[in-house]
């Protein structure tokens, strides 16, 4: 692993410059998340030819198009399914899945829990902006209660998913959450996720300033980015001050940092060993 300092990291080396400026709205948090991801990749010294990025549909899915690496832009909700096949066929590749909250939790919810269950060595980056931004601002499985979207003109009344707890319960061996406000911290988390052998599920709290922010009067881009600070609760606050204790005082329960890490059998190895045993038997 070669250490890349903030000085020597040049994001332009990892971008398809002919597609820039990108299509994301002004102030969209996805750009910062992508910077953190590429920074982590650069720090780990992963060659662009050995990096595969699989992305689904949505604003987050567009990220795949902008990275100068092996990229898939696949059907809605199925990036994890495609990535599973890719990683099983080419275990030498570093596979990163970029997906959104609607992509991975709504239409792709089933793929997510089974990917967690199998524990294949891929890194899933879920960019959570609490809304379907690209299609016009419909309610998503992570939209906070009482928030307005185009499909909830009287406020959202559906309870939201806690994606990290879902992934942990489904068996992901590395679960983390971070906000886009802290790019270096997010980079470290992503790096840890890529280094982890097994399924890493990372939730990135991102902002949709143009649709979600505007509909809910959450302020302009800088105000939304800054408000992430009050949404986050670093890992070190855990333990004694668990979510239950101070929920009445701090209603926003986003705990950040590494939330779960357990060593489990990696699926790819298991699969290959099984195939080898069967081939020998024949």
């Amino acid at each position: 692993m070669n250490e890349i300092s903030a000085d020597s990291f040049d994001i332009n080396e990892y971008l398809r410059l002919e597609l820039f400026p990108h299509f994301l709205c002004p102030g969209c948090g996805h750009g910062m998340a992508m910077r953190a991801m590429l920074w982590a990749v650069a720090e780990l010294g992963i060659d662009k030819d050995n990096l595969a990025i699989v992305s689904g549909i949505g604003c987050s899915g567009r990220m795949g198009a902008y990275v100068d690496a092996n990229t898939f832009h696949v059907t809605h909700g199925r990036p994890l399914a495609f990535a599973t096949g890719l990683k099983l066929a080419r275990p030498d590749l570093t596979v990163i899945v970029i997906t959104g909250d609607g992509d991975s939790l709504a239409i792709g919810g089933n793929h997510l829990i089974h990917a967690c269950r199998r524990n294949l060595d891929i890194t899933c980056l879920m960019l959570n902006n609490e809304i379907y931004g690209m299609t016009g601002g419909q309610v998503s499985p992570t939209t906070t209660l009482t928030r307005f979207t185009t499909t909830t003109p009287y406020g959202n009344y559906e309870p939201a998913f806690d994606a990290c707890r879902l992934a942990e319960a489904a068996g992901a061996s590395f679960v983390g959450r971070e906000a886009t406000l802290q790019v270096p911290t997010l980079k470290n988390l992503i790096r840890e996720g890529i280094e982890h052998k097994g399924f890493s599920f990372l939730e990135v709290i991102s902002d949709c300033t143009e649709i979600y922010g505007r509909k809910n009067a959450l302020g302009n881009s800088p105000e939304m980015v800054l408000s992430q600070k009050s949404k986050m609760r670093p890992e070190s606050y855990g333990g004694l001050m668990s979510n239950k204790v101070d929920q009445p005082f701090r209603p926003n329960p986003f705990q950040t940092g590494v939330l779960a890490r357990n060593e489990r059998q990696e699926y790819g190895e298991l699969c290959r060993r099984h195939i080898a045993a069967k081939q020998q038997a024949e």
Binding site: D7, D10, I11, N12, L15, F20, P21, H22, L24, P26, G27, C28, G29, H30, G31, M32, R35, T180, L181, V183, P184, V225
Partner: peptide, 13 residues
Amino acid sequence: EWLCPDYAIKLHK
């Protein structure tokens, strides 16, 4: 530089 979502800012030291 870190928070620019459009990668428009680059700092050289």
